[in-house]
Design a binder for these strands. Structure first.
Lengths: 336, 336
DNA sequence: CTGTTAGCGCATTCAC
DNA sequence: GTGAATGCGCTAACAG
């Protein structure tokens, strides 16, 4: 079923049908009615790709995330997809995994699909390989990176002040009279390094010594939340062994904090009485666990919506700024 | 950058370039080398949509789910996307929401994108509106429905025997010497009605009376997991009020069970000592809460992989069957 | 107001 | 082996 089929049935030319479909002016009302009726009855639907070929507009945007199973990524994708769909764009979403080369491959697929814009979710998309891939494959289309930076003329950033937020988390623990703080850090992405910086700053300011000495890493590549939890558990063991005096633990993600919590509880260490616990992400997990988890709300939903809006503005070249910063909020629950 | 640009640079015709790109035979090796080199250097990438216009193959498939934020949906989408991408297909995923009309709209978008196949995740896609939309907009492409049925010549089903699984859950509770069972049921989707059927069968068989009389509904349209948890909490109150003797609760989803757990704990009712709790979905939530949640693993990952494979088989018309059934497994954890 | 023509980027005949 | 011509479904520019 093409516009030609409709045109034949209606006894008009294909252009007339096209005009009706696209609500172009300059058509006699009677003709429009007649064609529209046929259009409705025949169940015709335009081929958007064919249209895109001539209008040079795919109406696609690409969304890249490392792993959609991570709950705050999911939230981001949800919000962005709703907003972009509302504006007539179709989202192509890929879970790229952690490997930068793999990320570059997906960028090539997005080029093949002629996306009009891209949203990268996560600071690890600021890697050099990604930048090169963008420069090579998508040098012309606006690219918004969420919670990260990309030094490219077509790149935009929506940032979250997690460094400051982490300082606020430390402040919370200090208010709870904790003095032997530990920091449990996930893979050293730029975002996580910012949080570490915040932790160190706050520790120093409080006269609690070198933050890095109180930091334990939870190494691992698997982005699955279950794997994250397991890593948190392992890292908790390390904290307890190396820093037995610890009375407060700050985790760079909620998933790690959950693992941590499980390890503490299995050892009958009371949370928050013996050790207070704070996570980051404001994920559902923090509401599901018991005690509920104090966490840093990094406003992923707002940030994602802003990034979608920023992309839409960039399409109309009316983006006010290439860089946007949003602020976090500490959510105090039972674990602190 | 088109094949014509490459052709000009190479001093050959566009057809030759096309042949090189598609690895067609009948090209002198020296020519192929020369063109390939230019292809690589220039950073040319074919426009898949333009190709699709002539080959009549979009290499798109559509995935429809109600809400990607629901953790087992997310898992499904992840698995399907990985598998389809591996086979050269690009997935277009939409969160449709609960409204059947909205679902129909998304099906129309999929038609506009000329998807070659569709995967519907969830039994609520078996609704009449959806069937009509498929019949109208996508009568020719294979449609796989996960955990549901669609009476259409181009439809395939991958089912999970949750009815039997629910019976197994009741058996678990009986083994734990529970006799006053309640069933907490989410919105009456076909899948949830199957579970209810399983509950009733098992209750009757055990001589515990009419299952329906022991069933409480958690009404609500919001598919967000946080909303589900809240609904579970409300429903738990109702159970405690109407059936104060209850010593075991089976919930049709983990999220509801989490809400239930929270309400019980807030009333100092011990789980599992006073009331045992079992969910369905084997979601991360069940590992995050405390006590950890016994649950029915409905093998969403396997089911999703099977549905992707089924679709791929249908593309090559070598699908062995239109209907596939997989089996569940009870996972016993601390809550029972 | 409407039809004719051309061309988007590509693969595929059919000649040569 | 390779090129010229054609058409996929559609919109846009230009006639009329």
């Amino acid at each position: 079923m093409t516009i030609y089929d409709i045109a034949k049935k209606a006894g008009v030319s294909a252009s007339t049908v096209s005009r009706v479909i696209n609500n172009k002016p300059g058509i006699r009302e009677s003709t429009r009615k007649r064609v529209q009726k046929l259009l409705d009855e025949s169940g015709y639907t335009p081929d958007i790709s064919a249209r895109g070929l001539v209008t040079q507009a795919s109406r696609f945007i690409g969304i890249l995330i490392e792993d959609i199973r991570v709950s705050h990524h999911t939230e981001s994708v949800y919000v962005i997809e709703q907003e972009m769909t509302r504006h007539g764009y179709t989202c192509i979403t890929f879970s790229t995994g952690a490997d930068p080369c793999q990320k570059a491959k997906y960028i090539e697929i997005l080029e093949q699909r002629r996306v009009e814009g891209v949203i990268l979710i996560g600071s690890m998309f600021g890697a050099d390989e990604v930048r090169n891939a963008i420069r090579r494959h998508l040098p012309e289309v606006p690219v918004v990176i969420v919670n990260g930076m990309l030094d490219l003329p077509n790149a935009y950033s929506v940032l979250i002040d997690e460094e400051r937020g982490t300082e606020d988390c430390v402040a919370l623990l200090l208010r709870k009279n904790r003095r032997y703080l530990a920091y449990l850090m996930d893979v050293p992405t730029p975002a996580n390094l910012h949080k570490l910086q915040g932790f160190c700053t706050a520790m120093q300011r409080a006269g609690l010594g070198d933050g890095k000495a109180h930091t334990v890493y939870a190494p691992g590549m698997d982005t699955n939340p279950i794997a994250s939890i397991a890593r948190g558990r392992e890292a908790a063991k390390e904290i307890l062994q190396k820093m037995p005096d610890t009375d407060g633990i700050l985790c760079s993600t909620d998933a790690l904090a959950i693992g941590c919590l499980q390890e503490l509880q299995s050892r009958k260490i009371r949370v928050p009485e013996d050790i207070a616990l704070v996570g980051v992400d404001n994920s559902v997990y923090g509401l599901v666990c018991s005690p509920t988890l104090s966490t840093l709300d990094n406003k992923l939903a707002e940030v994602s919506l802003s990034s979608a809006r920023l992309l839409l503005d960039a399409f109309e070249q009316k983006a006010l700024s290439r860089k946007l910063m949003l602020f976090t909020e500490v959510i105090e629950r039972e674990s602190s």
